[in-house]
Amino acid sequence: MNAIRKSLHPGWLLVAPFLLLVIALYLGPILNILWLSVTDPEPGMGNYRKLFVSDSLLRIFWTTIRICLITTVGSVLLGYSIAYAMVHCHQKQKSYMLTLLLVSFWISILVRTFSWLMLLGHRGLVNNALEGMGVISEPIAFMRNELGVLIGMIHYMIPYAVLPLLVNMQSLDMRVMDASRNLGASGQQTFMRVYLPLTLPGIVASSLLIFILSLGFYVTPAVLGGGKVLMIAEYISVQLLVTLKWGTAAMLAGLMLFGVLAMLYIMSRFMKLSAVFGGSA
């Protein structure tokens, strides 16, 4: 009894009502979904067995993972350059850049997705211009394929990549880079041996964030993929709304959930997650 009282900080009492509410509201539906996945349409592991027999499911699965990985790499690479430029330019330019970044952050995903269609579509601005200049004779197929989905998703994800990296880079002591140069390291050596390792927590944080967000992407693949690129989120919605196979949908949703949890677990083996998410380790 004493031991329990000692290990239970009184602060927990204060947050307990809220905590219980959140747990009930989150855990209830999630358990319900998991329950559905093993009971609908009939009790058993039938839904999960589909993963191994259905070629199309497997293909959707790999498409999703491939697109999410490329999106993650692409947006973290671009986001890293943007964050770097923002941290190391003058204060005034930095606030301009931050404003631009936040503006694109606030614009609805639908608007951003459709503007890509206007820009890069079959009769879009870019294709029209190139054709007008006589550079190409046939329009380039930017949209309605995987390339289109990737362009749209990477563009959407860049602000999410920049923000954790920005926080990370801003907290660095730049005299450490001076020290590296003073000790004879070239710019490239300083970057590889000091800057990059010190920004690794930021890279991991934004990669995780983007990968997890991309897994649930729905609008962009639907619009820019032109029905040819089916990702798991869209497939789930089809199962729910069109074919009414709730069991399959629940199975896929559960799988995604456990995938994400497993990823977080593996990451936590390599580094303290609290450090990644900005805590003081």
């Binding site: 450490v176 390792p197 010190l198």
Partner: peptide, 20 residues
């Protein structure tokens, strides 16, 4: 001569050690 070619040792205010 750029800083990295001067071969001067330096002890910074606050040390600037590599934390990692």
């Amino acid at each position: 001569v750029p800083a990295e070619k001067r071969n001067f040792g330096m002890v910074f205010q606050g040390y600037a050690l590599f934390p990692h």
